[in-house]
Simulated scan of single mutants.
Amino acid sequence: MKYNFPITRTTTPKAKPDPDTLRFGQLFTDHMFIMEYTTGKGWHDGKIVPYAPLQIEPAAAVFHYAQEMFEGLKAYKSKDGRVLLFRPDMNAKRTTSTNERMCIPHLDEELMVEAIKAVVNVDKDWIPEKKGTSLYIRPFIIADEPFLGVRPSDHYLFMVILSPVGPYYEGGLAPTKIFVEDDFVRATPGGTGFAKIGGNYAAGMKSQEKAHEKGYEQVLWLDGVERKYVEEIGTSNAFFKIHDEVITAPLSGTILPGITRDSVINLLKQWGIKVSERRLTIEEVFEAGKQGKLIEMFATGTAAVISPVGELSWKDEKVVINNGEIGELSQKLYDELYGLQIGEVEDTLGWTVQV
Results as ranks from 00 to 15, higher is better:
311 E>F: 00
221 W>R: 05
38 T>C: 03
230 V>Q: 01
121 N>C: 12
164 P>C: 09
224 G>E: 00
235 T>W: 01
228 K>I: 05
34 I>N: 05
291 Q>C: 00
247 I>H: 04
158 F>D: 08
136 Y>L: 06
96 T>R: 14
38 T>I: 06
311 E>H: 04
296 E>G: 10
31 H>K: 11
300 T>Y: 05
36 E>R: 13
88 P>Q: 03
110 E>W: 00
316 D>E: 14
212 H>M: 09
20 D>F: 07
55 Q>I: 13
325 E>K: 15
182 D>N: 15
316 D>F: 02
17 P>E: 12
234 G>N: 08
89 D>H: 14
52 A>G: 07
194 F>N: 01
233 I>G: 02
164 P>H: 09
190 G>V: 07
224 G>D: 00
168 Y>H: 09
161 I>F: 10
56 I>H: 12
342 I>N: 14
101 R>C: 04
174 A>G: 03
50 P>C: 09
132 G>V: 10
212 H>N: 15
136 Y>K: 11
178 I>Y: 02
339 G>A: 10
33 F>R: 10
128 P>Q: 05
217 E>G: 00
131 K>T: 12
172 G>C: 12
140 F>N: 08
285 V>E: 06
282 I>D: 03
56 I>G: 11
314 W>Q: 01
36 E>D: 15
37 Y>L: 07
129 E>A: 06
73 L>G: 09
37 Y>E: 02
252 S>H: 08
204 G>Y: 10
151 R>Q: 14
215 G>T: 05
287 E>L: 07
276 S>A: 13
143 A>H: 08
71 E>P: 07
26 Q>E: 15
287 E>Y: 02
130 K>C: 03
35 M>Y: 03
286 F>C: 09
21 T>F: 01
301 G>Q: 07
243 H>D: 15
308 P>A: 12
159 M>I: 13
22 L>V: 11
215 G>I: 07
260 T>S: 07
252 S>K: 14
181 E>C: 05
177 K>G: 03
323 N>Q: 14
140 F>Q: 09
254 T>Q: 02
349 L>D: 14
106 H>P: 02
143 A>N: 08
349 L>S: 13
188 T>G: 00
85 L>N: 05
164 P>G: 11
75 A>N: 06
140 F>H: 12
336 E>N: 10
